[in-house]
Design a binder for these strands. Structure first.
Lengths: 182, 182
DNA sequence: TGGCTAAAGCAGCGATCTTTGCGTTAGTCA
DNA sequence: TGACTAACGCAAAGATCGCTGCTTTAGCCA
């Protein structure tokens, strides 16, 4: 039944958007009773967050040992994750939930994407290579990806994701990258 | 009465989030009848969009004729606009409205922020200076600003906005900036 | 001053969401 | 096998929202 509800959520998010996903609608689609969903998850935001959590543990690319290639893979992976049906909607759901869980949803969403990029960065650091700080990767790669996907900017494809990583690596091959900030 | 409704919208967006802004709630806060608001604006999305439109026509910084300084001013202005109460919430409202108006809201929001940066870019182009294309400014300045404000990343202040512009100008002082894409 | 039009208030309806109490089922362990 | 617990279905009640006729008010112009 949990799987039925989750699948219904994904389908509804894809079809009508995350803001239109309501618990009775999910229950109808899943063929279960709304009260069960209310008791188990409480609010639609919590349900969305739960589904978003389960979504990202799949198909993480393996590392090859080259920082730039690894970053490219994670970037392309993130872009594909955002681009697939309902991907951006889940991002929006994390970004704009109830005020109480707002901080939690935001931190969780940022932590999810940060964890992805931390893997190749830490690996490079252990190899002794100079790697840009995570903050810089967020600014130069993740932020443009999210921005362009949210606004449906055309030309936001794998090539573009790779270019972002390439430009980041070119700007400072092994530089710390912080621009003198405290 | 229009002003009362607008103020109520801003307050409610700040307090409970844009997704919780409903017409009866706005009407209660503004001290008017819900039916009046329904007739005038129709939906909550339209009301949000109207308020968002009125918001940005204020206090645009004047140009000094130096591209970097002008970009810095617009960047700081945009950051302050996002940071003030309800600023991000309005962005979210534009990003996630009804499916029908989704494209329209997205295009409007992107166009608003693009128009801000087009002013100093066009001015520099008319002076004969080489200016980066708007797309590049969006990637390197606007996207990080939005990303960090949405996720409440600490240290996102005027200094940071200026650093983004500085790094953009340093990377290619008068280069076209497109990385060989078609 | 007296009609005319646009806009706002009022009351109520229907639909949907949310919650809660209660009965039923399934799964577990002694 | 029989009790126990947790989860689910069912149904009813309360609340909110979106919307719509109808009335009332206010501004305007001859």
């Amino acid at each position: 039944m949990r799987t039925a509800v989750h699948r219904a959520v994904v389908e509804l998010v894809h079809e009508v958007g995350a803001d239109k996903v309501t618990i009775p609608a999910v229950a109808r689609r899943a063929g279960v009773n709304p009260s069960s969903v209310y008791r188990r998850w409480g609010t639609a935001s919590a349900l969305l967050a739960d589904v978003a959590d389960r979504r990202q543990d799949e198909e993480a690319p393996e590392l090859v040992g080259d920082l730039r290639k690894d970053l490219e893979r994670v970037a392309v992976w993130t872009l594909e994750d955002l681009s697939r049906p309902g991907g951006v909607a889940f991002f929006r759901a994390d970004v704009a939930p109830d005020v109480d869980e707002r901080r939690a949803g935001l931190r969780a969403c940022l932590e999810r994407v940060s964890a992805r990029f931390r893997v190749p960065l830490d690996a490079a650091a252990e190899r002794g290579e100079g790697a840009p700080p995570l903050e810089r990767v967020l600014d130069r790669v993740v932020a443009p990806l999210y921005f362009r996907v949210v606004f449906s900017v055309p030309g936001t494809d794998e090539r573009y994701a790779r270019d972002l990583v390439a430009e980041l690596c070119a700007s400072g091959p092994d530089a710390p990258g912080d621009r003198g900030r405290r």
